[in-house]
Design a protein around this nucleic acid. Structure first.
Lengths: 250, 250
DNA sequence: GGCAGAAATTCAACTGCGTTAATTTCGAGG
DNA sequence: CCTCGAAATTAACGCAGTTGAATTTCTGCC
């Protein structure tokens, strides 16, 4: 049961075997797979269920009438694309894949059944939802205040830590399966300048980026250079669990 | 009972007399008042209750170590500052007043009691929460893609419409009780450039801004100029209710 | 009505990032 | 191994927005 979601939720609270089984059942119910650069759901659609990314990277994005595109958030394995969307009448943005993606379609009923029967899961999903909102706020700060270098550095710190809690980091590195154009759309910069910025980070020895693999040889250094403060990811519980030696290697 | 929150929620769903009474009780429980430029709650604090703005303007903000400040969102009368914050261990941002503010401190228990007893309220608060998240996403687009003029125009459209659904607009205008420095911190621009931008919008006849009062003589024109699409505010229900002649003038 | 501090406005010099476009490298498929 | 399209890289030039500082206009208060 290699469920990234579980590994993430367990960084917040401990789940019982029953909890895990319940989650597993919900996720197994209906799965879909898409190739890279396809839409999972489009602006204007009427959302009927919740999507959970199981494998691959996706993103939320909006396209302005004149073609400009903003990537609003990245979805990594274990991320929900909007629990509770169905309260709203129509999607105000689209969700698309960046790489080939496997995801679970969870019906409104299944989800509310699990959460009402397993209060731990309810609590954990709440935590996850709040963290996602917090990440969105941090992006506002990132786009509003940070220079290009700080901004990109900050994003790389965030993605690395997020991948780490779902068990997708390898030591001091991780996969970064997106193009520089994608990064540009996310950071509100041009591709040319993203390229310049990455060179600069490489030149300063803060990152090693070859092909689709990112290494951060000195995370604290990159964090400092990017004015990155991890508190917004609310990982405060993680340490304790790892120390207890229970979660961590799921 | 001049509760802006109620007027907002009724733009989403109809509330019963009981619903309204319940909300009123919760809000009356404990109220506080602060002057302008004070903090309601600070980064690092452990949140114990939910705050609801009753009167005045506040904002969410983050301050970087080197002093740069980003306003992450504006809170208008009727806005909740994070339902469910208390799930998290510590605030990752601060909430401060921009004008003198009256707000209600709602305890975790009171809130969960109301929502469990009045499902309509639960549903309406969910809608409100999702709309707030949607606004945060739109700010990401705003900061990432729009030019200074579009960006400021977009913000003014948003604030006007948000004030309108809580009954605080007067025809084609509303109060705008914030300084240009505040707008600058929200838009990721310098005060100098905010000033230039406002001049430009004035020059184009898109806004009239005198003292603390804003008039938008031709809202569709400002919307077009700002690439503003109101769908992200999810007001789709409002029209129907107003047509029915029930809500609107609360 | 006058004073003090805050807010708004204006100016000029400067720069970070965008734009356009050309060139090189990479990766998947034949 | 070769080819083709996508992605990455590089360079030159322009502009939107910044910085710092000075000036003017408000606003609240005595």
């Amino acid at each position: 049961m290699p469920l990234h979601l579980i590994s993430k939720l367990e960084s917040f609270t401990r789940l019982s075997v029953l909890d895990r089984q319940a989650l597993d059942a919900v996720v197994t119910e209906k799965q879909r797979r898409l190739g890279a650069r396809e839409d999972i759901i489009c602006e204007g659609d009427n959302p009927s269920h919740v999507n959970l990314i199981l494998d691959g990277w996706a993103c939320r994005y909006k396209q302005l009438e004149d073609g400009r595109r903003q990537i609003i958030s990245f979805f990594l394995p274990g991320d929900f694309c909007d629990s509770h969307v169905y309260v709203l009448r129509a999607m105000d943005h689209s969700i698309g894949t960046l790489t080939p993606v496997t995801f679970a379609e969870i019906s409104r009923d299944s989800l509310s059944q699990v959460t009402s029967r397993q209060p731990r899961i309810m609590q954990a999903l709440w935590w996850d939802t709040l963290v996602q909102a917090s990440i969105q706020r941090e992006w506002t700060v990132n786009l509003g205040q940070r220079s290009a270098t700080e901004r990109v550095g900050h994003l790389l710190c965030e993605l690395f830590l997020r991948l780490r809690i779902v068990g997708l980091a390898d030591g001091d590195g991780c996969l970064l399966p997106v193009t520089q154009a994608d990064l540009a759309d996310a950071m509100g910069l041009s591709t040319v300048h993203i390229n310049r910025t990455l060179q600069e980070l490489r030149g300063a020895g803060l990152i090693v980026l070859k092909g689709r693999h990112l290494t951060i040889p000195d995370l604290p250094a990159l964090q400092t250079a990017s004015l990155f403060n991890p508190n917004y990811l609310h990982l405060d519980h993680v340490g304790r669990h790892l120390d207890a030696g229970t979660a961590g290697e799921l």
